[in-house]
Computed example of a mutant assay.
Amino acid sequence: MISYTLKCANDHRFDSWFQSADAFDKLKAAGMVTCAVCGDKHIQKAMMAPRVRPARDAAAQPSSQEPVAPPPTQLSEPANEAEAALAKLRKQVEENSDYVGKDFASQARAMHEGSAPERAIYGEAKLDEAKALIEDGVPVAPLPFNIGRKTN
């Protein structure tokens, strides 16, 4: 397999994989390579740097003179405002809600029907269960982060 950076006559650039260089040439000649943005059939290979891995035995080994940094002992700080906002939201959800795991759909439905006391919950639901809750008017929303809890 070979990856090419391609460009069209409108200077849109995109990457595409081909079985070989000959396969690219045959597909281009048949008019089957088109711009991923505008559909233009006038495609050329763009300038790109080759991706070559060094041989296993030629891989650079750290010298004894270079200090090797120890692995981090904790997770890094959020890289930007969006990550910080997600971290804050996650902390708020975990501190103010009960985790009900894979029982989320039945717990949410029971609260909506009045057969269970209302409280803030979060957990996991299969796609079809979540759709059924929404169709039945149960107020639910997906969380913008992975819960990351194990239930075993």
Rank of each mutant, 00 (worst) to 15 (best):
H12F: 03
K41A: 15
N96K: 14
P67Q: 13
R13E: 13
P70T: 06
I43K: 08
H112C: 03
S3Q: 15
Q65N: 09
E66Y: 00
K126H: 08
A105F: 02
N10M: 12
C38Y: 02
E129G: 03
Y122W: 06
Q19L: 07
F18P: 10
A49Q: 14
Q65L: 12
A36N: 08
H12E: 03
L86F: 13
A30C: 00
L133Q: 09
D136M: 10
N96E: 15
A108R: 05
V33S: 10
A21R: 13
F145T: 03
G137F: 08
M47V: 10
A58P: 00
D128N: 07
A108I: 06
W17P: 05
D22G: 10
F145H: 04
A9F: 06
P67W: 04
Y99A: 05
I147A: 05
G31M: 04
A30D: 12
D40I: 01
Q107Y: 12
E118G: 00
R13Y: 12
A120Q: 13
W17S: 11
Y4M: 08
P117E: 15
P78F: 02
K126Q: 13
D98G: 00
V52I: 15
S3V: 15
E83Y: 01
R13C: 01
R51Q: 11
H12I: 02
L127Q: 11
R51G: 02
K26I: 09
A120G: 00
D25C: 01
I43Y: 08
V33E: 11
C38V: 01
A125P: 03
L86Q: 14
Q74G: 05
A30G: 02
T151N: 10
Q44L: 07
G123S: 08
K41G: 13
G39K: 05
C35V: 08
Q74C: 04
A82R: 13
L6M: 11
S20R: 07
M47Q: 12
D40A: 06
P54D: 09
K28Q: 14
D40S: 09
F14T: 06
G123I: 04
Y4D: 06
G39A: 03
A58N: 14
N10W: 02
A82F: 14
Q61T: 15
G148R: 13
G101H: 04
D40E: 11
L75S: 10
D25F: 03
V68F: 02
A55M: 07
F18C: 09
G31F: 03
A46N: 12
M47N: 09
A59Q: 15
D57K: 07
S106G: 00
I43G: 07
A116R: 05
L6E: 11
E66A: 14
E129T: 00
I134A: 12
T151R: 10
M48R: 11
P70Q: 06
A49S: 11
Q19F: 05
M48W: 03
A30E: 13
S63F: 01
D103W: 00
D103S: 15
S20I: 09
M32D: 11
A59S: 08
